[in-house]
Write a protein that binds this DNA or RNA. Sequence first.
DNA 1: AATTTAAATGTGTTCGCACACACTTTTTTT
DNA 2: AAAAAAAGTGTGTGCGAACACATTTAAATT
Lengths: 360, 360
Amino acid sequence: MDNKSVRIKDIALKAKVSIGTVDRVIHNRGRVSEKVRERVLKIINDTNYEPNLMARALGSNKIYNIAALIPDHHYDSYWLAPKLGIEKAEQDLKQFGVSVGEFAFNPFSVESFIEQADKVTASNPDGIFLSPVFYREVLPFFEKWRNQNIPFVLFNTQIAEFDPLSYIGQDSYQSGFLAGKLIHYGQPNPCSILIAHIDEEISNAAHLIKKEQGFKNYFSQNHLTQYHIQKTELNRSNFAAFTSQLDGIIESTPDLAGIFVTTSKAHEIAKYLEQRFIKHIKIIGYDLLPPNLYFLNKGIISFLINQNPKGQGYWGIHQLTDYLVFKKEVPILKYLPLDIITKENLNYYLDEESRFTDFR
Amino acid sequence: MDNKSVRIKDIALKAKVSIGTVDRVIHNRGRVSEKVRERVLKIINDTNYEPNLMARALGSNKIYNIAALIPDHHYDSYWLAPKLGIEKAEQDLKQFGVSVGEFAFNPFSVESFIEQADKVTASNPDGIFLSPVFYREVLPFFEKWRNQNIPFVLFNTQIAEFDPLSYIGQDSYQSGFLAGKLIHYGQPNPCSILIAHIDEEISNAAHLIKKEQGFKNYFSQNHLTQYHIQKTELNRSNFAAFTSQLDGIIESTPDLAGIFVTTSKAHEIAKYLEQRFIKHIKIIGYDLLPPNLYFLNKGIISFLINQNPKGQGYWGIHQLTDYLVFKKEVPILKYLPLDIITKENLNYYLDEESRFTDFR
DNA sequence: AATTTAAATGTGTTCGCACACACTTTTTTT
DNA sequence: AAAAAAAGTGTGTGCGAACACATTTAAATT
């Protein structure tokens, strides 16, 4: 309400103490008598004092080091987007004294992960942002970091143990549920539908299971019992096997009308269908990777659900900054929207610039 | 690259002048010899100097007044969202010295608009943010503001005359095109489709025409010539007429399978269809208004295209701030994404909090 | 009661920049 | 050539907060 913002100085005046004392109260530095402390605190509350963040950042010349522990995108291009988001966030936040160090590991090598995680720990950062792809191996680090009181934020994969500061990502279950809706909307008449897990070990990937569950539940909750849903795991490392496996499914399922690809590899299915000249099967997949976009634009992939990996990187660093720099409370769970992408609205999601731009 | 950021002081040192001179160069305040000016400018470039925005905002105690000229949401609840976005932006940006004054007018009264626009002009703001709903009446103001060198940003309705600083909104044509896709995807077999303009004078609303065009072009560009597309204008001010008009259309079009509502009034159609127990007609509409959400959740409206009105308000103020405070170049056109909303992903678009939070 | 120690509080400098003002040099006017 | 005006340049203070350090006051020790 008050137009003029109240300063530390004003509080000091009202409390009849010096600004130094107010400062001590604000930062819980101790060395203040209880009586004065309460008096000051009351005034701070009454006056709705809000610290001037710019003055604060200016005054304390502190630099907060955040370590980002993410898969190297050279092994899987999916990880390029989070990296870009992280860098964008750093760009935006560096004026507030945030500095991000990137530690990239080979997502197919446990040793590489451990090595980089060790480096992270050794760098003694103020906060850690990571995608904990190796469940078992990351736990000891969680414990270590907790003991050292280093907050860590997770993205992409959710692990609730050792209470991370926050998790950034999507609601996998709901995204599967949404995929169900999209398939169903496009195929109003009962048919067969395939859930395809491509290129990932289900056992290791809880989120794939959740997607599958959500998808199936869409049909059961809506009493669409006549739809026949089957699932398969595919791996394109062996191309011949990949193809023949699909051939088998197609052959044995004449009424197959939709495929839900739970990973970012929808383009593999698209490529196959194109080669086989199959046009009546609709594909729903994930992520705006170039090969996916190619088939989206060709109309072979109907929809992609955007997991907004860049946004995950961006908001992760953001959350840590909120916590470290601005001492804000941060939500334990931050779900990014389930963007439905089709050929016709794709453009507006590629120019990510507009989706961030941040401030205080 | 350089870890240490270069300060005005460093530049002064290198150029062998005082910081005052550098300051003059940076702000084009004149009173600097051409020779020195160029020397300083070169160093600024070479060193990639970037002003510390916090120090800047702190140092110059200037307050930028932005006037927001928007329809009063009491007349049409659509306008509540932009208002909220504006206020959110003000909240985020006030620490940079931005203050927003709101001027609400009755969107059904030209006089009210002129009265408020006059007030805006009289308040002599540093920038103006408005939705120019009255084309003819706003032009003289544009001219006046241009002469006074007050930048103005438009939203919701685009008017290119008198070159506004920027336009924030959606690509109406493309949104119609997208709606075409959504209807078509849900109705793979040829049928009749209705375009309904509800509660707005088409003659005044260029964006409705564009939506219609985009919608039609989706079908023609994809050679879907067997689809029969008709259009109608409806007005619910006379409820009986509204109903009977729809009755007529339904009766004369037995194969009607989809309705595209170009305004935010899809719920009116939904209500009608529900009353008539018609379930096979799919509705696509705009905007996340409560009545629309009600029918979205009931499954009577299939999809809503989110025009992100809150985002429009937010980014509009943001753009003006970029221009005024940060002296950035701002895009003349800023299209917000065409978000496809369905019952299953709605939740993530309602919690708008996460879509902004801005920074520098 | 004098002295030491600890607790409580106050003061001054710094952060990077903006802006007002003072000062110096050059140019113009008379 | 002296005086006035204009152009060019430097200095100092303030913005709001952080933090180190100085100072005062109270409690503990002798």
